[in-house]
């Protein structure tokens, strides 16, 4: 029996006339590493702020560790390890001062553990927070998010602005300090290839809704590009779950979301095809900018070149 740690039901949110979330539903189960993906401005931070009780939804309900963040935001903030996007910390404090300042807010703060993270993350205690490197700030943020031994950790785009080495270190921290401890982790990103190595589950947020929610491996197995001919698409196109389609040079390239079924159908109908594996950027692209209506790309005429 799986137990859900986060539940979001039919949440809507507008900022002035602009609709950001439009019927958002999602569930994060205990022990999962849940990657929350979307383009910039898709509403990831808005959702996370609502989970932390920092924003109020227009409609719908949220539950975090069984608590409604609107009713008891303090309880949520005490029990969740939270790292905000571009976390503004008190730059004038030294690292050790900041740790001592934050600790009393959490009844479950573990000083020994905090000390352990200081060593493991190689944090300079005497340095002012504003003088830390980007990588060090993220690690300090992680320390503050983890030292109270939260059951659930919510990280808002923790890898933003990190270089490839630091991103790898961050993924390693996630594997050793969060997954190995059995914590539930929700973290947002706009880079599918960065979350693939560590995420159990991926959810893609687009147009205010989750457009796809699947175990990482399933997503790869189910989203494929199929090359076939126009007649074939005319015959079976309506039965395929097409994310993106285009016709070039007489061939149709359709990106489908149910590759197994699509292949079975094509075999049954004895239609010739080729299957192309997609990389994660292409999968993400198919969901967030894919066009279901098959476009015909007519060859452009080369401009006449005048010989010199």
């Amino acid at each position: 029996m799986t137990e859900s740690v986060i539940e979001v039901k039919n949440v809507q949110k507008h900022f002035r006339e602009k609709s950001v979330l439009d019927g958002l539903n999602m569930t994060v189960e205990k022990g999962q590493t849940f990657a929350f993906l979307g383009r910039n401005g898709a509403g990831k931070t808005t959702t996370i702020k609502m989970l932390m009780g920092l924003l109020k939804p227009d409609n719908g309900s949220l539950s975090v560790l069984g608590v409604d963040p609107l009713v008891d935001p303090i309880q949520v903030r005490r029990s969740v390890g939270y790292l905000a996007e571009d976390q503004a910390m008190f730059g004038w404090m030294k690292v050790e001062q900041l740790i001592r300042f934050i600790a009393p807010f959490y009844p479950t703060w573990d000083h020994k553990l905090a000390q352990q993270y200081v060593n493991q993350f190689e944090l300079p205690l005497r340095t002012k927070v504003k003088h830390l490197s980007k990588g060090q700030s993220v690690r300090l943020g992680l320390l503050l998010a983890l030292a109270h031994r939260p059951e659930l950790v919510i990280l808002d785009d923790p890898a933003l602005g990190l270089d490839p080495i630091m991103r790898r270190d961050f993924n390693r921290d996630l594997v050793t300090h969060m997954q190995a401890e059995g914590r539930t982790v929700l973290y947002s990103s706009h880079l599918l290839y960065e979350v693939e190595p560590v995420a159990d589950v991926i959810a893609i947020l687009h147009d205010g809704k989750i457009v796809r929610h699947a175990p990482t491996e399933n997503l790869r197995a189910q989203v494929k590009r199929i090359m076939t001919n126009t007649d074939a698409i005319a015959r079976v196109g309506s039965k395929l779950n097409i994310l993106d389609g285009r016709v070039t040079a007489g061939e149709v390239a359709v990106t489908v979301d149910n590759a197994d079924e699509a292949i079975e159908l094509l075999n049954r109908e004895e239609i010739g095809y080729r299957v192309i594996d997609l990389n994660l950027d292409e999968i993400f692209e198919a969901f967030v900018v894919g066009q279901k209506d098959i476009r015909f790309e007519l060859p452009e005429v080369e401009p006449a070149v005048q010989s010199a």
Binding site: V175, T176, A199, D200
Partner: peptide, 14 residues
Amino acid sequence: VRQMARDLAVNQNT
């Protein structure tokens, strides 16, 4: 499993 996951920075379940 633990070591390999840490070295590669890959999910332990994987």
